[in-house]
Design a protein around this nucleic acid. Structure first.
Length: 457
RNA sequence: GUGGCAGUAGCUCAGUAGGUAAGAGCGUCUGGUUGUGACCCAGAAGGUCGGGGGUUCAAUUCCCCUCUGUCACCCCA
């Protein structure tokens, strides 16, 4: 007995209809990226381990898929390290390559490596799968796609403004009716740490307050306490949890709060510029909000931070992004600031499914099916089939003279729009019978009129 | 990586206090004769009850391990 086939943990197969829907999302994103001047690049699915290891923190290293050395290289295994129970070192001796964990670090490597071939500011987009040895959960996989756009080599805030327009355009194009772009600035968070006398605890503070909408005010306060933040600092931070007013009003309040912090005030000014331009330009469907508790886990962000959430749908953020001053420094290229965003295609897919926003058209992968009545009819159909295809109408002929019931059921399963029936009488009259599957209506159409008849429906 | 819950036909699930209890709906296939799908009727196929080990005269049902999924944490898309 054959064993039941399965795919590895955290991976997925995609049916034709699912691929069509995913491509609809990817194509929308790509088209918009290109409209905004981003060019596509690709990088290998695996990199040297040394390129990736240590770039995502200790937790990240654990989640990187390592590729086992093969052939003679297995002899490099460091058995001594194994004896000494030095597992990381042992693992390194077994593996020199690893699967891409995200698109940003490979991009940094790419920029450094090709710096002489690129002109800056360099704008690229990249839509490729990445792999993480994470424990799968609903909506979290070991293999998934990232859709990133980044620009490196400029500190200009015009790019922040651009990215907000881009978020708005892509998601509006996908017909998402109501979503909010949240924006904050790491300099404001640094300012908060500074004026509360907790500079050294910037990371724990940002990680904690980022969880506000998930664990609530008390939860955040508890976490801050656990992380050893002083009581007086926590008291100062607390009012930030319920700032009210519109974005500009909140920024003014923050300006008071941060009046002692130079870096904090700089963050305020940057945000005012970005928000001001955005309001002047206007947005289609997006709301734009300043959220001082928005932090994002990634600690390479140094300036603006973005996150996008769909309103009225119970789901985490569908897009994110931010500015980083020094991503390429790790690979030896200094003074190369960047800013980038990422679309969460899988979550967007779920949102469009939940809200029933996928175009119905995506389900029709076949426009015309010729019914097959036998050899003579078949050869009569073939030239017609070719003509339809030349007119860009996706068509096929049933491969054998099976029962009509079976052929129609096949047409139905394929969601073919039309079935063309050609038997003895049709051949004799030089007319074909066209059945519109949706309505069941049948029409006798002259062969010369066939293409225009199909095209008009 | 830590902890909780789950795993029975292609899908969604019922069931057995351990012993003729392996079932339903949907789906699939065939038929309801001549060139017609979605509705209706009839029939059929399809499961070592996730995998391995243990306890027992006997395990889908109890215990252990493992795999997969799911939830929370960690982290994150």
């Amino acid at each position: 007995m054959a064993q039941k086939p399965t795919i590895p943990k955290g991976t997925r197969d995609f049916l034709p209809i699912e691929v069509a829907k995913r491509n609809y999302i990817f194509d929308t994103i790509k088209t918009t990226f290109q409209k905004y001047g981003f060019a596509p690049i690709e990088t290998p699915s695996f990199e040297l381990s040394s390129t990736l290891m240590g770039k995502y923190g200790e937790e990240g290293d654990r989640l990187i898929f390592r590729i086992l050395n093969s052939g003679e290289k297995v002899k490099k295994a460091d058995l001594k390290a194994l004896e000494e129970n030095n597992l990381p070192r042992f693992a390194n001796s077994l593996s020199e390559k690893a699967l891409r964990y995200d698109l940003t670090v490979p991009f940094a490597r790419f920029v450094v490596q090709h710096q002489n071939d690129l002109s800056f500011p360099f704008k690229r987009y990249q839509i490729q799968p990445v792999w993480r040895a994470d424990r799968p959960q609903h909506g979290r996989y070991q293999e998934f796609y990232q859709c990133d756009a980044d620009v490196v080599g400029s500190e200009s805030l015009l790019y922040e403004v651009d990215f907000i327009q881009l978020f708005d355009e892509v998601l509006s194009e996908l017909k998402i009716p109501d979503f909010t772009i949240y924006i904050n600035n790491r300099k404001i968070l640094s300012g908060i740490a500074e004026v509360t006398g907790e500079q050294s605890n910037l990371i724990p503070i940002t990680v904690a307050i980022d969880k506000l909408d998930k664990i609530g005010k008390d939860g955040v306060i508890n976490e801050l306490k656990e992380k050893g933040i002083s009581v007086s600092a926590i008291e100062r931070i607390q009012p930030l949890f319920d700032l009210s007013g519109d974005a500009m009003e909140k920024l003014e309040k923050m300006r008071d709060f941060l009046s002692e912090s130079e870096i904090g005030l700089q963050g305020i000014s940057e945000l005012q510029k970005v928000l001001g331009d955005s309001h002047r330009l206007g947005l289609k469907n997006a709301k734009l909000e300043f959220d001082v508790t928005l932090a994002r886990g990634l600690n390479y962000y140094t300036g603006a931070i973005f996150e996008v959430k769909v309103n009225g749908v119970k789901m985490g953020s569908i897009c994110g992004g931010g500015r980083y001053d020094d991503l390429t420094g790790l690979f030896g290229l200094k003074d190369m600031p960047g800013v980038g965003i990422s679309f969460g295609a899988d979550r967007i897919y779920d949102v469009l499914t939940t809200l029933d926003l996928f175009p119905k058209q995506l389900e029709n992968d076949l426009t015309v099916l010729f019914a097959n009545f036998g050899e003579e009819e078949e050869s009569f159909c073939l030239p017609l089939l070719k003509k339809l295809r030349e007119a860009n109408i996706s068509s096929e002929i049933y491969p054998s003279a099976a029962k009509m019931k079976k052929q129609f059921k096949y047409a139905d399963d394929r969601r073919a729009a039309f079935v063309i029936i050609i038997g003895a009488s049709e051949m004799e009259n030089q007319k074909v019978t066209v059945k519109e599957m949706k309505t069941g209506e049948q029409t006798s159409v002259a062969i010369s009129e066939l293409i225009s008849f199909i095209s008009l429906h």
